[in-house]
Write a protein that binds this DNA or RNA. Structure first.
Length: 861
RNA sequence: GCCGGGAUGGCGAAAUUGGCAGACGCAGCGGACUUAAAAUCCGCAGGCCCGAAAGGGCUGUGGGGGUUCGAUUCCCCCUCCCGGCACCA
């Protein structure tokens, strides 16, 4: 510790101790929260005819569970900082919030606490809204959307009718996913590794039920193709959606059942097995047909064959077990020969029909042709059951001398040439696929086709707390849509909710019994409700015109806010990559085809923030590592909580919450506060600061460097952690020079400028403190829309540079040179440096490298 | 198996185009202020070694190799962690 440091510290201490008060975040934040809430227009977007450029920033709306968690705080702090930054840059910002408020938890709460779902939900919304306001998020509450209210869900019903009119909503009996805990059907997207997305310990059952489906597959191709246009989305999400859509080009081929043998009588005469293959070129190598154990023909065969039935049931059980274990990909292949044959339509050859546990009924046609020589799985299977392996493709080598005639099997490559394939021998695979598909089509036993992994969206839920599906069943007229004028179909209240026994609505006679709009006779109402993902598929359009009671929204208004490319910035968790984000893309395309909007995609730029974890694990009640936002706000203040959630990690990475870290942020906020308190009076921008001292120039330089760093990050990579570090460095710089600036008259203009810009820089991240200080320095207007500070490249330039000098790539010395020094000057200084001379003495300089303004490297021998 | 992301001090992290590794913060240590503590302010701080100190040397970004005057950054191989997809025919 030097003498100088001691005296400096003493000086700081002496300066104006009375004004050196502690920052009382609770008091200041309470004051501003009240002021902000008393002005409902504060965060309201300008009307859609505004001349300003629009910016629509949106965070995914929460489910009103009753309390915010730290993941919400992080998500909303990112969006809020961006919204505030855009306001300060003069944009017309739309920053709304709402509630995804239908769903099962409300029903469970109703059963446990005897509280009606509506009451429970609206109470939670009020609590969470109060939390959001306390944290200071800048939402335009005049546009609040609550999906469980009839004002909103009537438009779900309206959309359903439009979908139905266009054949995009239909009713179908099929195997569907049933969660025994939710007591309802789930969409494919809501089943993860064979388990319910809400109950990870619960296996989903397959039940055959009649359900409503939305024809998302009609848009499968467009959903896939447009992913290429979504350059503002994370590659990860685009890949996940590509995988989920799972487009696969191939050929359907009919194998006729063989009746030549004595075992006539299986299947109707002329029945065929339709197989899907991407490699029709290998069909001359097909040595068996493999059926999924659930295939209808298998059921026919097994009906009169108890032994086969038992074996097939065994295969089904194996498949289910593998699915339950989450490793259907690892299943040990088993199969059973049915004793029957099918005819290969290309060469009229008889091939045995097998049933195998690795064939999935829900992909393709549930039947394949097995080509052991050219498919891994078929090869394994054929080896195990000693089926014929027949080579039909040879790899093509560039060098004809090296042509392989006995490739290692299975040979999977597409880049080959057909052999043993009748008239197609000699063709290359790609060519053969085209010709053979065309041949099959011309002869009526097949056609080129495209298969998708994605299935139509099953939206029926046997639950109470959701949007009633606006359909009726009449004995005379069958399925009848509720007329548009009769919407909304109101969800009745005071319903006795139980989980078992089907939809609770089925036990409400006033609801069920209706009149058929066609014949006037009695009709039954549909008692299932819609999947809650319907609600969130279009909610962001409703924000643009939240109180419209004649349409879901006004098209012109929506077009202003969505433009041609959608929401400017959408922020949320990656867990919705193939749920909400694929459904809402589908819904947008449908609304476009209805003529409501002109954009093809709902979201131009998507940001997926990382999780908030603690002690290396996701926060959860069972681990006891939950951090409560309320507690953080009470202990450290809302500014500290949101600033820390941005500072601790880049926003796209997981954030490891540390209580000691937020204490550091609290200290930083106090440091800013004390500095401005001490200097608010001394600073006077009216006094010109002409001849600045080196310290003054240094402080101003740091200011402009900081403005640049923070602005650049908002424009580009969003590493708010380094933005906040930069602001901390600026504050450290101010402290380092404080005593030299504070006393001097000429410094006061500079001080005023720096303080003002510092407050502006903090405003998007710590709005409470920023507003308090804004007022303290005597500014009048609202900080929310104060112009963002401008960066001046001249003022940010360093006057002197410290140039590291390396010798053979190793750092040996540093020299200080004027910023505008020539290469020659820098090199001479480097060579003249004592330490450098000591190292290179007696050696020969082979090469001199100067990287402008950055470094010198001398290569010596 | 395939496709992403990641691995840097005691901890969270930074290094934006191949150019001083560890900014900023936490925890730690020392000092000032205080009767004392808290708060605050000032400093030190990757590791190992030499030195009383000033200072100096070596080493260091998961591991191994390569390109380069120079690699956390580019290339090849490998290990581990996280996420997604998976007999998809």
């Amino acid at each position: 510790m030097s003498q100088e440091n001691n005296s400096k510290a003493a000086m700081m201490q002496q300066r104006d101790p009375e004004r050196d008060e502690r920052y009382n975040a609770q008091r200041v934040e309470a004051k501003w929260a009240e002021r902000w809430q008393s002005d409902p227009q504060l965060y309201a977007a300008d009307p859609a005819d505004s001349a300003k450029k629009k910016f629509y920033v949106l965070e995914m709306l929460p489910y009103p569970s009753g309390a915010l968690h730290m993941g919400h705080v992080r998500n909303y702090s990112i969006g809020d900082a961006l919204a505030r930054y855009m306001w300060m840059n003069g944009y017309n910002v739309l920053h709304p919030m709402g509630w995804d408020s239908f769903g099962l938890p409300a029903e469970n709460a109703a059963i446990q606490n005897r509280t009606p779902p509506r009451e429970w939900t609206l109470g939670n919304i009020a609590r969470m809204k109060a939390q959001m306001n306390r944290i200071g998020f800048a939402y335009d509450w005049s546009r609040e959307v609550t999906t469980c209210l009839p004002e909103y869900y009537r438009w779900n019903q309206w959309f359903f009718l439009k979908l139905y009119e266009r054949g995009l909503a239909y009713r179908k009996k099929s195997l569907v996913n049933w969660c025994p805990k939710c007591c309802t059907v789930l969409a494919n997207e809501q089943v993860v590794d064979g388990r319910c997305w809400r109950h990870e310990d619960t296996l989903v059952e397959q039940r055959e039920l009649e359900q409503w489906f939305l024809r998302i597959t009609k848009y499968a191709d467009e959903l896939l193709r447009d992913l290429d246009e979504l350059g503002g989305w994370p590659e990860k999400v685009r890949t996940m959606q590509r995988n989920w859509i799972g487009r696969s080009e191939g050929t359907l081929i009919d194998f006729k059942l063989d009746y030549a043998e004595p075992h006539k009588g299986f299947g109707p005469a002329g029945a065929t097995i339709k197989v899907f293959t991407t490699r029709v070129d290998t069909i001359y190598g097909a040595t068996s047909v493999q059926l999924a154990p659930q295939h209808p023909i298998v059921a026919d065969l097994a009906a009169s064959n108890a032994d086969l039935r038992a074996k097939v049931d065994q295969l089904i059980a194996e498949q289910r077990n593998a699915r339950e274990a989450g490793d259907i990909g690892e299943i040990e292949k088993h199969g059973v020969f049915t004793g029957r044959y099918a005819i290969n339509p290309f060469n009229q050859e008889k091939v045995p029909i097998w049933v195998a546990n690795y064939i999935l009924m829900d992909y393709g046609t549930g039947a394949i042709m097995s080509v052991p020589a050219h498919d891994d799985r078929d090869y394994d299977f054929a080896k195990k059951y000693k089926l014929e392996i027949r080579l039909v493709v040879l790899p093509i080598s560039n060098d004809p001398e090296e042509t392989v005639t006995e490739p290692v099997l299975p040979y999977i490559g597409h880049d080959g040439m057909l052999v043993n394939s009748g008239p197609y021998s000699g063709l290359e695979c790609i060519e053969a696929i085209k010709k053979m598909s065309a041949f099959a089509e011309q002869n009526g036993f097949g056609k080129a086709t495209v298969t998708y992994r994605i299935k139509d969206w099953g939206i029926s839920r046997q639950r109470y707390w959701g949007t009633p599906i606006p359909m009726l069943y009449c004995d005379k007229d069958g399925i009848v849509a509720v007329p548009e004028k009769d919407l909304p179909v109101i969800l009745p209240e005071n319903v006795d909710i139980t989980l078992a026994g089907g939809s609770p609505l089925g036990r409400v006679p006033e609801f069920v019994n209706a009149t058929c709009p066609k014949c006037g006779g009695p009709a039954r109402r549909e008692t299932d409700t819609m999947d809650t993902f319907v609600d969130s598929s279009w909610y962001f359009y409703r924000y643009t015109d939240a109180h419209d009671d004649r349409a879901p929204f006004d098209s012109k208004t929506a077009q202003y806010w969505f433009g041609e490319r959608g929401i400017d910035q959408y922020i949320g968790g990656v867990e919705h990559a193939i749920l909400h984000l694929i459904y809402s893309r589908f819904w947008t395309k449908f609304m476009r085809d209805l003529g409501l909007i002109t954009n093809d995609e709902p979201v131009e730029r998507l940001f997926t923030q990382g999780m908030v974890i603690k002690d290396g694990a996701k926060m959860s009640k069972s681990l006891g590592n939950i951090v409560s936002p309320d507690e953080m706000v009470a202990r450290y203040g809302a500014d500290a909580a949101r600033l820390y959630s941005l500072f601790a990690a880049p926003p796209d990475r997981d954030l490891d919450w540390q209580d000691s870290g937020i204490e550091g942020i609290q200290r930083f906020l106090g440091r800013v506060y004390r500095f401005v308190v001490r200097n608010a009076g001394a600073a006077d921008s009216s006094r010109a600061g002409a001849n600045l001292s080196p310290e003054e120039r240094q402080v101003r330089r740091k200011l402009h460097q900081t403005i640049k760093r923070v602005s650049d990050d908002f424009q580009g990579r969003w590493h708010f952690n380094t933005c906040i570090s930069a602001i901390m460095e600026l504050v450290n710089e101010l402290y380092a020079h404080e005593e030299k600036l504070a006393g001097k008259e000429s410094s006061s203009a500079l001080l005023a400028e720096v303080q003002r810009d510092l407050i502006l820089l903090l405003a998007p991240f710590a709005p409470y403190l920023a507003n308090e200080l804004w007022e303290m320095i005597g500014e009048k207007g609202t900080l929310l829309k104060a112009p963002w500070p401008k960066y001046d490249a001249e003022l940010a330039k360093e006057e002197e540079l410290e140039i590291p000098v390396q010798i053979n790539g190793k750092l040996r010395s540093r020299i200080i040179v004027p910023a505008n020094s020539s290469e020659e000057y820098v090199m001479n200084q480097a060579l003249a440096d004592e330490k450098v001379r000591a190292v290179i003495s007696g050696k020969q300089i082979v090469k001199k490298i100067y990287v402008g303004g950055k470094l010198v490297n001398l290569v010596v021998r």
